[in-house]
Simulated assay, not measured.
Amino acid sequence: MYNREEIIDKGLEIVENNLASDETILFYDFCVKARIKVTPVTEALAVTEGIPGLLAFTNHNIFFVQKSGLIKSTYEIAVKIPLEQISHLDTSGLLMKSLKITVGTWEEETDHVFLNFKSVKDKEKKIEKIKTELEEIIHKKKEMEKKNLQM
């Protein structure tokens, strides 16, 4: 269906070319971005109907580089979320664990749901651990911003 290693390599290349001078990649993994609302009934369909790509966390942003095109593959940054815009993180799923990133405020929120992480499938890393790592990155970013504002 798709070559995970190729998606990781091309996605990393694109992310690295779009980093700020003080930005570093802290975590990345292959996953699928859901196009439909993910529920226990639809989680398998969300994976098969989702968009394959690379999810990368940096000390400033979250990137999702998606693969598109059947005959000729193209790669592009489909989602770029500054860490300070993330309002909530959640994990769920019975068979397919997912990570939901909520961006914005209560009045205007957008959810991005990512499933089928390569490392989770390989049992090297659990989705809850990915969420915890991301929460730590966001917390550190907010602490640094507070320190910078106080100076």
Rank of each mutant, 00 (worst) to 15 (best):
E13N: 10
E5Q: 02
I130P: 04
L99K: 03
S68Y: 10
Q66V: 00
G50E: 04
L115G: 06
I77L: 07
S21V: 08
M96I: 11
K140F: 09
I25K: 05
H112I: 00
M144V: 02
M1A: 10
I14T: 05
K146F: 11
H88D: 10
K126S: 12
N59I: 03
K10H: 02
L94R: 04
V41A: 15
E5G: 00
S87A: 13
I25H: 03
H112S: 02
E6L: 06
G93H: 02
L12W: 06
T39W: 09
L115R: 07
I127H: 01
N18T: 08
Q85M: 08
K10W: 00
S98Q: 00
E5D: 01
I71Q: 04
A20G: 04
I137Y: 08
H88Q: 12
M96Y: 04
E124L: 12
I25D: 00
S68C: 02
L19D: 03
T91S: 09
V103N: 05
D90Q: 14
K140C: 06
T42L: 08
R4T: 00
L54P: 04
V41L: 15
Y2C: 02
V15L: 06
S68E: 15
K121Y: 13
M151V: 08
N3L: 03
Y2S: 10
E145L: 15
I71A: 10
K147V: 12
K141F: 14
K123S: 12
E143Q: 15
Q66A: 14
V32A: 05
I81C: 11
Y2T: 09
T42W: 05
K131C: 07
H112Q: 05
L134G: 07
L26A: 12
M96N: 06
T105A: 01
G50D: 02
I8V: 15
K67D: 07
V120R: 00
T42Q: 08
R35P: 03
K123H: 12
E135F: 06
I7D: 01
V113W: 04
Q85F: 06
E5W: 00
E135T: 09
D90G: 06
C31F: 12
